[in-house]
Write a protein that binds this DNA or RNA. Structure first.
Lengths: 123, 123
DNA sequence: TCAATAGTTCAACATCTTTTGAACAAGAAG
DNA sequence: CTTCTTGTTCAAAAGATGTTGAACTATTGA
């Protein structure tokens, strides 16, 4: 039940950049970074689109080597592959994350999260 | 006779990453970096494709804010917008360039350049 | 003036991407 | 066992992207 992930040496720069070139995926990465390593469920991203669409974008990020997806019950726990990417392309991820965290789409999802928390749901 | 370029604040991260996500354009950037600021003509890139195709890719890079294109006679002189990008997205360009310069496509064009030089053409 | 050089523009085509809804799978909760 | 939750897969539609050749502009040089 483990999903296919590229090994560090299989991660190609143009695939990484192409994956991050989509605004939705860049926002997903920005939000993951803002959660500072805390694993995140797909459901958290539904502000960005339909379940199907999020599933599609998360698969792209995983296949590019940017995220790791672990199966946990009916959920998938998404994390950034920060250490793998830092080894493969030193210095690449930090400036991207820094800019991505400031994106309006990320603000949107953070606000939605606050509203949910205010209503008593877990983070 | 000046071509349209985005101002630094008009440069969007997702556009930059999408532009660099194409292997041909990433190789163009790698080659420009390997020329260390020396302006480069479109003709230099014909190893990567037809004139039409190179024109298309160079326009994409210019519109994304990655390159500057200056008109000089019938030629266009292409340079990387390193300082603008370093201000807009500090630390972004360096690791990309470092990896892009090692790309096989860049090696190809450098070899073609050496052959041309050996036959007595200007760089 | 005439031809060569350096690039662009255009329309056409193929391909890849993104998005959607319906149907499905599988664990969790009752 | 049944139902709810979480997410995937599939096929279809819409759109964006990359590639090409022919025709074109504009400068350079004879």
């Amino acid at each position: 039940m483990t999903l296919p992930h590229p090994t560090p040496d299989q991660i190609a720069l143009s695939n990484v950049l192409a994956a991050l070139g989509d605004p939705t995926r860049l926002a997903i990465v920005g939000y993951l970074a803002s959660r500072d390593g805390r694993p995140t469920m797909c459901l958290n991203f539904t502000t960005f689109g339909s379940k199907t669409n999020i599933s599609y974008h998360l698969a792209k990020l995983r296949e590019a080597g940017i995220t790791r997806t672990e199966v946990s019950g009916t959920s998938r726990l998404i994390t950034l592959r920060r250490d793998d990417l830092d080894i493969r392309f030193p210095g690449l991820l930090d400036p991207i994350i820094a800019a991505a965290m400031d994106l309006p789409m990320v603000k949107m999802i953070e606000d939605a999260e606050k509203d949910a928390l205010a209503k008593g749901e877990p983070g």
